[in-house]
Simulated assay, not measured.
Amino acid sequence: MREFASKRRVFAALLGGKVDRVLATCIGACGGSVSVEIQEAVGIYWPEAFKDPKKMANLAIGSQKITQLECVSIGDEFSILPEA
Rank of each mutant, 00 (worst) to 15 (best):
T25P: 01
V42G: 05
A13V: 00
S35T: 14
A5Q: 10
D20R: 03
S6N: 12
E83Y: 13
I38C: 02
A49V: 11
L14F: 09
D76A: 15
D52H: 00
K18M: 08
I61C: 01
E40Y: 01
F50T: 11
G28V: 11
L59Y: 02
V22W: 06
Y45Q: 00
A60N: 03
E3Y: 10
L81M: 11
E70P: 02
G62A: 00
M56W: 06
S73L: 11
Y45N: 02
G28E: 12
G16L: 02
F4Q: 15
L23H: 06
V36H: 10
A5Y: 08
G16H: 04
K54G: 06
T67W: 00
E37H: 04
S6T: 08
L15V: 02
L59E: 00
M1F: 09
V72N: 05
K7R: 13
V19E: 09
A13I: 00
V36G: 08
L59I: 01
E83C: 08
L69N: 12
V10S: 04
P47E: 04
K7V: 14
E83S: 10
T67Y: 01
R21S: 03
M56D: 08
E77R: 05
G43I: 03
S6A: 15
I27C: 15
W46Y: 15
G17N: 05
G28F: 06
E77T: 10
R2A: 14
I61G: 01
E70C: 11
I61F: 05
V42T: 07
R2T: 14
V36P: 10
F50K: 09
R9H: 07
I61H: 01
G43H: 08
L14D: 05
A57F: 11
G32W: 08
D20V: 05
E40S: 07
A5S: 13
R2F: 09
I27Q: 09
L69C: 11
G75N: 02
D76E: 06
L81C: 07
K55N: 01
F4Y: 14
E48S: 12
T67S: 07
R2E: 13
G17T: 07
E37Y: 01
A60E: 06
G28D: 14
V19M: 07
G16Y: 01
P47N: 02
V34P: 06
